[in-house]
């Protein structure tokens, strides 16, 4: 009888706590539903329509079929994969290297480097981009000035206006603005690796490489997974740099899916087509994120 009473009371308690939890969650849930889930649903639905300012006709999968017949979209797709393929490994490797070099330093020095690498993140994208644009300028830019002065090049290079260099320049800028957060995270993660394990490995005669590969790397795997996913998503969604620097040119050499979505939806008012590309991009990001979770063993440490 007593047990029954206790059970009843604990059940009521659980219900009350659950209700309170849900009430606390409600504001966030409201915004999440209203500004993320509902727009996503609308995006999915309208991708099956010829949706412009003056038309809203159901056309089935026509937007998706058109996408793969659109040369500019295919070029944007390839460029986007190049950006992701280059920037993600580069950001992870460089951040890990910098993190590993910094985390054992004195607190002041460590903070100093953290600030330096984090500066491009806290500085506004527009300000950063304007400086880069000036440095890349064909006529008055720093790079041409230095390279010409050093005798490395014979004539001025149009860094952002030449198909051979434009995408590489974008990747370089994206790289500098992407490494700040991973470096800070790696410094924290490396500082949290269990030192007793490292000391034990050292006593057992493990080499530095073995220690890193067998102990440090698995310990920072959750951080690596986060860095991989976030950098990949940011790289896939590369838009602001393109908008501010090249508008997708020259000859679509820096066209990305995100910029092309913007162009179709906000310049040509072809919302349905833009949304179809958005859905396609979301699917790609979801699949690649899932693969990353799988490959990195869901960020778990054995």
């Amino acid at each position: 009888m007593d047990m029954k009473k206790v059970h009843k009371r604990s059940k009521a308690l659980v219900i009350r706590e659950t209700v309170v939890s849900y009430i606390f969650l409600a504001p966030a849930l409201f915004f999440f539903l209203g500004f993320v889930i509902v727009p996503m649903g609308m995006c999915l639905v309208t991708s099956f329509f010829n949706y412009t300012m003056t038309d809203f006709t159901f056309i089935g999968f026509d937007n998706y079929i058109r996408m793969f017949q659109d040369e500019v979209f295919l070029k944007a797709l390839v460029n986007t994969f190049i950006i992701v393929g280059v920037s993600v490994p580069a950001v992870v490797i460089f951040s890990l290297w910098v993190g590993a070099s910094i985390y054992k330093m004195k607190a002041f020095t460590r903070s100093f480097y953290r600030c330096i690498f984090y500066l491009p993140v806290v500085t506004g994208t527009v300000a950063v981009t304007v400086v880069w644009k000036w440095m890349f300028n064909k006529y008055t830019g720093l790079f041409n000035h230095v390279l010409l002065g050093a005798g490395i090049i014979d004539e001025r290079i149009n860094w952002l206006g030449d198909e051979r260099f434009a995408l590489a320049c974008i990747i370089l800028i994206l790289f500098t603005t992407s490494i700040g957060q991973p470096i800070v995270l790696y410094i924290a993660a490396l500082g949290n690796v269990d030192t007793s394990l490292l000391e034990a490995a050292e006593v057992d005669g493990a080499t530095k490489l073995q220690t890193f590969w067998r102990i440090t790397w698995p310990s920072i795997m959750p951080t690596t997974l986060y860095v991989l996913v976030i950098t990949m998503i940011n790289s896939f969604q590369c838009y602001a740099l393109i908008q501010l620097l090249t508008s997708g040119g020259p000859n679509n050499a820096t066209q990305t899916i995100m910029y092309y979505i913007y162009y179709q939806a906000f310049r040509l008012y072809d919302y349905g087509y833009g949304n179809a590309m958005g859905i396609f991009l979301a699917i790609i990001i979801a699949i690649l994120s899932a693969i990353q979770f799988k490959v990195t063993n869901s960020g778990k440490v054995d």
Partner: peptide, 19 residues
Amino acid sequence: FDPAAVASDELQLFANGTI
């Protein structure tokens, strides 16, 4: 021809005497 320049860039080059 400069595919990296927009009108405001060209005006800037003109204003600073580069062109």
